[in-house]
């Protein structure tokens, strides 16, 4: 009981802090900077989710933009259908908007998670690098499908029924409330028996099997969770810019996500958070160098892989930096 109360108090306190930061952000920053801050939050969600499958589990998805797209379209569509219902039931105030927005995000996550299952089931039974190809194909196919789906606006994109586009639900508060929730959930998952088993799969799949680890089931579950997370990010993204277009989810978007998790350190949640912020900021800094951006990202990937494949943090979390280093040095002296 005391525990539940304490948790509720922390929960409320975190929401209040996020709300306060949101107010400060809106007061102190230009709209341009605010947009970068929101994008950084969405990137963090993408990176933390992708890291679960690419980093922790050691399977490689290079088509996560496809799941983001499914989440974005799903949330946008469901949100549009849901809004009138919510308005009738709850009025037209903030509560009603919050209700339909978050339900729409969850619906988007559900669609994305289900497509993750469809993609993951055949490819995750086999060696991980097949997943790379299947997800690459999936990312392309999903764009072709949205390009041709007339009820979702086909190539021009989906903007809802209102001429002004989708409602701008995505505010600082909602982005960072979702960031906090997802980071905590994925962190808890990573540091649990499931997370240990996923890491064991990455380290040695045959040994993990011999230790009764249901490898396929866990890989597929992790992949679906990762896809659902990308779906949430997609829903937030859709409601930030009035609509979703197929070209928002090109292969480049998947590459952005991979850069996020590689720069910070594959397998580290803190690394993914730093990487998400890094990509949001560097995208803006390189705005004038658009055509060179991907060349630079590509070189960055190659150089990191050759020089420091573990990324900035390796698999450590920020708060472990000190502790693990101590353990490491102790070992070196004993050798």
């Amino acid at each position: 009981m005391k525990r539940t109360l304490l948790r509720a108090a922390i929960f409320v306190a975190v929401l209040l802090v996020i709300y306060g930061l949101g107010v400060a952000c809106e007061a102190g920053f230009t709209e341009y900077v605010q947009r970068i801050v929101l994008l950084a939050g969405i990137n963090v969600i993408l990176a933390v989710g992708l890291n679960l499958i690419n980093g922790t589990t050691g399977q490689f998805s290079i088509g996560h933009a496809g799941f983001m797209a499914v989440g974005a379209y799903g949330a946008a569509y469901v949100g549009v259908q849901l809004a009138p219902v919510a308005h009738r039931a709850l009025g037209t105030g903030a509560v009603s908007n919050a209700f339909s927005f978050n339900l729409a995000l969850l619906a988007g996550a559900l669609f994305a998670g289900l497509s993750g299952l469809i993609v993951g089931l055949p490819s995750l039974r086999l060696r991980g690098d097949y997943l790379a190809v299947v997800t690459l194909g999936f990312g392309e196919i999903i764009r072709i499908l949205f390009n041709n789906a007339t009820f979702l606006g086909a190539a021009t994109g989906y903007f809802g029924d209102d001429p002004s586009g989708l409602p701008a639900y995505t505010t600082f508060f909602w982005v960072y409330a979702w960031v906090a929730l997802i980071v905590v959930l994925i962190h808890n998952l990573t540091f649990s028996q499931t997370g240990r088993s996923l890491t064991a799969i990455r380290e040695d799949e045959i040994a993990a099997e011999a230790m009764a680890t249901p490898t396929t089931r866990l890989k597929v579950t992790a992949f679906a969770i990762s896809a659902a997370t990308a779906g949430i990010a997609g829903g937030l993204f859709a409601h930030m810019q009035a609509g979703v277009r197929p070209e928002d989810f090109r292969f480049e978007k998947s590459i952005d996500m991979i850069v996020m998790i590689i720069v910070g350190g594959l397998g580290s949640i803190s690394g993914a958070i730093l990487g998400g912020i890094f990509v949001a900021v560097s995208l803006e800094l390189m705005r004038d160098l658009q055509q060179y951006r991907l060349v630079l990202y590509a070189l960055l990937l190659i150089v990191i892989m050759i020089v420091r494949p573990q990324g900035l943090l390796g698999r450590r979390e920020l708060y472990q930096l000190f502790r693990k280093r101590k353990a490491g040095s102790g070992l070196e002296s004993s050798r």
Binding site: F60, I255, I258, I262, L294, A298, L301, I302, M305, I306
Partner: peptide, 8 residues
């Protein structure tokens, strides 16, 4: 990942 980088 290197191969993806080279391709890109």
């Amino acid at each position: 990942i290197t191969a993806i980088g080279v391709s890109l």
